[in-house]
Design a protein around this nucleic acid. Structure first.
Length: 273
DNA sequence: AGTGTATCCTGCAGGC
DNA sequence: TGCCTGCAGGATACAC
């Protein structure tokens, strides 16, 4: 569900409020949400830790604490990480983990489908995992030329290539399709056949769609909510994703849908080659 | 090594 | 109304 802009929006909601709070208690209602831990071990690991910062890496919410322990939340398809000021009622539909924080605040992880994961471990273990992920597309170090070089070795379809987190971090099905639309590249095009100028167009498409989506608070199709339970408003700005049969905003021809890699791709057959 | 497929899980929309 | 099918923003284990 949530891709880079949605996770970034959650992080921006938490970053001003969560740091400084100490984790006083943890209740795990859905143990299968925990990545490589048990409710008892997880609760013991985070108890008494004070949050230092909340940041994003790829589609992960990264919560640093003192004592060199990092908590990482991946929202999967339908996960929500919600923050509750003191006295506010916790409203959840599929509560998986609940935290009691200092000064009466609380946080909850809610997830209908339970594809998301909550992990806690030493900073160094997290850094090892993070080092396997590709570059952040909004980093200055990520350029059109770097993208073109990375594409050269691969014959994977461009949409599949963009979804692989080892290539680029944080891209999911919505923004992969949107960026390919903006660059005029079909989702099925083998990566190595993307030209240098197309790679620059794709870089620019990625940065512009991600930046605009963040400005809109992300895309809510159904489940996504920010840390305050609010929807994102980018869905109305989508040009290709989910619009099969509707006119291409540029040429008016109908957008097509094609399933491969187990997921739907959307493209304009006239504007994208 | 790189790529494709199946799988985890629940809910909802659409067809009959 | 109810039943059935297909589909959904992700990540990973496996087969080739």
């Amino acid at each position: 569900m949530p891709e880079l802009p949605e996770v970034e929006t959650v992080v921006r909601g938490l970053a001003p409020r969560l740091p400084g709070h100490t984790i006083e208690g943890t209740a795990v209602l859905r143990p299968d949400i925990l990545d490589g831990s048990t409710p008892t071990r997880f609760a013991r690991l985070v108890k008494g830790k004070t949050v230092l910062s909340v940041t994003r890496r790829a589609k992960n919410i990264v919560i640093r604490t003192d004592a060199q322990i990092t908590v990482v939340v991946n929202l999967g398809m339908t996960g929500k990480l919600l923050f509750f000021e003191p006295g506010r009622n916790i409203r959840t539909s599929h509560l998986a983990v609940r935290w009691k924080l200092s000064r009466g605040a609380r946080m909850a992880y809610d997830d209908v489908r339970r594809f998301g994961r909550v992990w806690a471990g030493p900073n160094s273990a997290w850094e090892t995992r993070a080092s396997m992920m590709g570059p952040e597309p909004l980093d200055a170090a990520f350029t059109g030329s770097a993208l073109h070089r990375a594409l050269l070795g691969s014959r994977a379809p461009m949409r599949s290539w963009l979804l692989d987190q080892r290539h680029i971090a944080g891209i999911g099905n919505i923004y992969a399709n949107e960026a390919l639309y903006l660059a005029g590249i079909r989702p099925t095009r083998p990566a190595k056949l993307v030209t240098e100028s197309e790679a620059h167009a794709l870089h620019s498409g990625l940065t512009s769609v991600l930046t605009r989506a963040i400005q809109s608070g992300g895309t809510t199709l159904r489940d996504y909510r920010n840390a305050d339970g609010e929807r994102g408003e980018y869905a109305t700005a989508l040009k290709a994703y989910g619009r099969d049969g509707l006119p291409c905003p540029a040429c008016g021809d109908p957008i097509e849908r094609q399933v491969f890699g187990g997921r739907s791709a959307f493209f304009c057959p006239t504007c994208q080659s």
